[in-house]
Amino acid sequence: MSIPSYATHNPRANCRSSAYLDWLQMLSGACLVIFMIMHLFFVGSVIISPSLMNGLSDVFEWTGMAQIGGPVIFFLLLLHFVLAARKIPFASKQQGIMLADARRMHHLDTWLWVIQAVSGMVILVMGSIHLWTVLTDLPITAEKNAMRLRDSAGWVSFYVVFIPIVWLHTGIGFYRIMVKWGVVGIDGRSSLRQKDALVVAAAMIIGFATLLRFIFLSK
């Protein structure tokens, strides 16, 4: 309620903050979805040819997009996490309630939210590591990535975990924006879910193909 139940010095409490924060949560999420798709095409271009990827990378470097865009994305990631975390329960009692509810109800959308909350935490950590590693070693080139992956089983397993989690989170996030903000109606929901799942699967395949391409990239 915007009418405060406690005394304040304002005649009327600032009641728009929830709305602004919700806007920001959605918009930051949407931006990250768009970024992820662009990112996919960018690194996926290595499948066609490493020089294509390097060429694109040069463009980013030359226009300053990598130097500025990189940190912006990092900031967006953190912002999105903080905003979304407002809704994620940190008290174990509430977490227990949510899990029990999802389990009892056998309800897909509740499970999707649980996946979002958990994957969000993982992405915060892994995404930070990924971004730090990449951004501290600009420019991004196919060879650098390839080297990193070829020499270390640790990095390979890192991405084997990271790629599916990121795409799961991106896909579910997109679906949830669509239904939460009334873009898709009741009838469109299940078909949206199906199409979304297909896109996510495709993205994961491209992601893994890219990973393999890096690993087996000849010098």
């Binding site: 109800m105 959308d109 509740t110 939210w113 949830r176 239904v179 939460k180 929901r189």
Partner: peptide, 9 residues
């Protein structure tokens, strides 16, 4: 309405 997490239960 901004508390709704869109679980659609």
């Amino acid at each position: 309405v901004f508390g709704c997490m869109g679980l659609l239960g």
